[in-house]
């Protein structure tokens, strides 16, 4: 534990040193770059420090914790969630503007570099938080958001039960799931969260991270044109998917207010307990989603 925190302290010191050196170079006036190009270089130089700091802090905060049935989320999870939300709040609107501004062929009455600057701040927060969560989960023992090996069919069946009946039946039919049997019982998280929400979040966040890093890499490495083209295209696609995911996430959690309370206070409520093991095939589905 002490070693983890020592590593985290070293990472904090390195990150602060890196940020001071990078911003010092950018603000020295020695470079002939304009504001936008200067910000590009600042961003690409800050990325390794943000990733390393997030990873080190995540590992330090992770590890075995005292079991507490009254808690649904640990303070570190709550902090990471809201940091990620803040990152999206900064990066999504500015990313949308960069894309739609070109489509609409209009400009805002403020310099474009400011849009990019806010986008980069949001992206840095997102990268930091993703590394934080990776380290945190790697060091911890809670895997309740993951579908265990060999359990996908059970989780997908549970998901089909949680969806509105018509949609659930359609998905079950496509995936060859049998909804006539006993309805699976969800664990700490609903099947919607384990079989759909978390995997799709993982996919879109991985896509936006890899494509964003490829785009940023061009300022330190000659990235081939076709690769850059596809990275840019898929970065926009990932942005659109994240917009959809955020809307769906808000819709899902607002319908279950105790989830909002849990992600604010950490406290679980009785309404978040797993659904009772009931519901024969004829009555299955339609209660949650």
């Amino acid at each position: 534990m002490i070693v983890r925190w020592l590593v985290a302290l070293v990472a904090i010191a390195l990150a602060v040193s890196g940020a001071v050196a990078t911003l010092g170079q950018a603000g020295s006036g020695a470079q002939p770059w304009d504001e936008e190009l200067s910000d590009n270089f600042v961003f690409v130089k800050v990325i390794p420090f943000a990733l390393a700091l997030g990873l080190a802090l995540g590992i330090a905060l992770g590890g075995p914790r005292r079991a507490d049935a009254s808690r649904r989320f640990a303070p570190a999870t709550i902090a990471g969630h809201w940091l990620l939300a803040l990152g999206f709040l900064l990066a999504l609107p500015t990313g949308v503007w960069q894309y739609m501004g070109g489509i609409l062929d209009v400009s805002l009455p403020l310099p474009l570099y400011l849009i990019y600057r806010v986008h980069y701040i949001g992206a840095t927060l997102i990268l930091f938080t993703l590394a934080w969560f990776l380290g945190y989960w790697w060091a911890g023992t809670d895997r309740s958001l993951l579908v265990p090996r060999g359990q996908w069919r059970r989780h997908l069946t549970g998901l089909a039960h949680e969806l509105p009946p018509r949609l659930g039946r359609m998905i079950a039919s496509r995936l060859g799931l049998d909804l006539r049997g006993e309805r699976p019982t969800a664990g700490k998280f609903s099947f919607y969260e384990t079989a759909f929400s978390f995997p799709t979040w993982t996919f879109v966040l991985t896509l936006i991270t890899i494509t964003g890093l490829a785009k940023a890499a061009r300022y330190v490495y000659p990235v081939p044109g076709p690769l850059l083209y596809w990275a840019s295209t898929l970065h926009v696609a990932a942005m659109v998917l994240i917009l959809i995911k955020v809307l769906d996430h808000l819709r899902y959690t607002l319908a279950r207010w105790s989830l909002v309370v849990a992600m604010t206070t950490g406290r679980a409520s009785a309404s978040l307990a797993p659904a009772p093991r009931v519901a024969p095939a004829s009555a299955a589905g339609g209660d949650d989603e």
Partner: peptide, 19 residues
């Protein structure tokens, strides 16, 4: 549209029974 509908439900308390 789905989110806007959920907001309406939240304010009109119809979602309260769902947690």
């Amino acid at each position: 549209a789905l989110l806007a509908w959920e907001c309406y439900r939240l304010v009109t308390k119809r979602a309260a029974v769902r947690g």
